[in-house]
Computed example of a mutant assay.
Amino acid sequence: MGLRRSHLVAACEQRAVMVFDPLSRRQVHHIPHAHDNCVNCIKFLDSRVFASCSDDHTVALWDVRNLKRRIRLLQGHSNWVKNIEYSAADGILVTSGFDGKILGWDINGYTEESLLPTELFKMQGLMRMRLSPDCTKLVMCTTGGYMVLVHNLSLEHLAQDLQDFKVSERE
C-alpha cells in the first residue's frame, strides 16, 4: 500500500496560488498568475481537482497533477467571486460573489466550449455563503449585517424556496 500524498493549497492576494506538502511543510508548486486579481478561496472537489475564485470575476478549475495550466475557466459572475462550495452528491460547484448571485456549476455537464452556470439565488447585499458539510444547510451573510440560514437545502429548488424572501429593514 502506497502513501497517498495530500496537498495544502493557499489563495494569495497577489493573484497567485501556492501548493504545499503538509507533511514536509515545503512549497511544491507556485502558480504566480492563477488569476488576474486577488485569489479569494480554494475548494477541493476531490483528492486531485480544486477550484479557485477571484476578484477578477472568475472561477478556475485545477488538477494538482498538472498545474502548468488550469483545466477550465468559469465565467458567470459580474463582480468579485468570494466563496466556493462543492456539493459532491449533486456534482454541483456553488459560487457566490458581490454581484449578489449564488451560481451552480454542473462540473460534469460541460461542453467543449464552456460550462454554463445556473443562477440558484440572487440577493442584493450578499457578501458570502457557506454550505454545511452534509450540504443540507446554507448560510448567507449580507452587507447589512444579516445572517440567513436555510434548512433542508435543495440547490435545485433554492430560488423557488426563497422566492418571496426579503430581508426586513432594521428599526
Rank of each mutant, 00 (worst) to 15 (best):
S6Q: 11
S6N: 11
S6R: 10
S6C: 11
H7E: 13
A11V: 06
E13W: 14
R15N: 15
A16I: 01
F20R: 01
P22R: 03
L23K: 12
S24R: 09
R26W: 03
Q27A: 08
I31D: 05
I31G: 10
C38K: 12
V39F: 12
C41M: 15
C41S: 15
I42M: 08
K43Y: 13
L45K: 05
D46Y: 04
D46Q: 06
R48I: 14
C53Y: 13
V59T: 15
V59R: 07
A60H: 14
L61W: 04
W62I: 10
W62N: 11
I71R: 11
L73N: 07
Q75Y: 00
N79R: 14
N79M: 08
W80G: 00
K82N: 10
I84E: 05
D90C: 05
I92L: 15
F98Q: 05
G100M: 03
G100K: 02
G100A: 02
K101S: 14
N108T: 11
G109H: 08
T111P: 01
F121I: 00
M123S: 09
Q124M: 06
G125Q: 03
L126M: 04
M127A: 11
R130E: 10
D134M: 06
C135T: 15
C141L: 02
G144I: 00
G144E: 15
Y146T: 08
M147E: 07
M147Q: 05
L149F: 12
L153C: 02
L155V: 09
L155G: 08
L158R: 11
A159H: 09
S168L: 11
R170A: 14
E171V: 07
